[in-house]
Computed example of a mutant assay.
Amino acid sequence: SITDGSASHPGSNVWPASRLSVVRPQESVEALRRLGMPLHSLKWIRGGFRDDALAASEHPVSQLIARYLQPGDVVFTTWRNDGNDDHDAVGRASAKACSLTGARLYELPIWAWHWTAREGSMIPWQRARKVRLDTWGVARKLHAAHAYASQLAGDPEIGLAPMLAQGLLERMREPYEIVFV
């Protein structure tokens, strides 16, 4: 995890950064458990970089990622043109780390699914590949997404909508994921 995700609700009294810095890592562990990941055999690396400011730390982020890669490894990351500054920075840093180490890079669009049709023309469909999911895979994915209570709840007091809006959750019901190769 490059950041702890604590900047997702700026100005919120319900989800202040101090609470999110504890809750978000717990949500991630629970999401992986729901996906069926063998948590006892995973080595979780926490970068500790400041959430919402990764562009300024792109080089050290790339170095951190490269430190753990070997030729032939496979890296799944956010797409470097996703439209979220942190997602873009992590995508670029991951691409750099992969090019330095010979690891294989797969980028996932996340915020791009919110784009308008005009913006959608900027998506590199020629690099897109469909990873098909069976019924159980889709169910596990949705169950894992619901581990992120902080992302399912905005803060109506300050007009902050949920990060995992209903439209995004509906898209998660598709029996595939799109990755860019």
Results as ranks from 00 to 15, higher is better:
S18L: 10
L100D: 15
G72C: 02
D4W: 02
L105C: 14
P16G: 13
P10R: 04
V138T: 05
L142T: 09
Q26D: 11
W115H: 10
H40R: 08
P156H: 13
T101G: 09
V22R: 08
L108Y: 12
D73V: 11
P71H: 04
S99Y: 13
L133V: 01
A161F: 11
I178P: 13
H59M: 09
D82Y: 01
R67D: 14
Q70K: 13
G159D: 06
G91F: 00
N81E: 07
G5E: 05
E30A: 11
S21A: 05
M163T: 09
M163L: 13
D155C: 14
P38H: 01
P60Y: 14
W115E: 02
N84Q: 11
G72R: 03
D82S: 00
W15V: 04
F180C: 01
E107S: 02
L20P: 00
Q126M: 03
G5M: 05
L108V: 10
Y176D: 09
V14P: 05
C98E: 08
R80Y: 05
A161E: 08
L42F: 01
L39V: 01
W44L: 05
A128Q: 03
F76E: 00
R67N: 14
A128V: 01
D155F: 13
W15D: 07
S94L: 08
L169I: 15
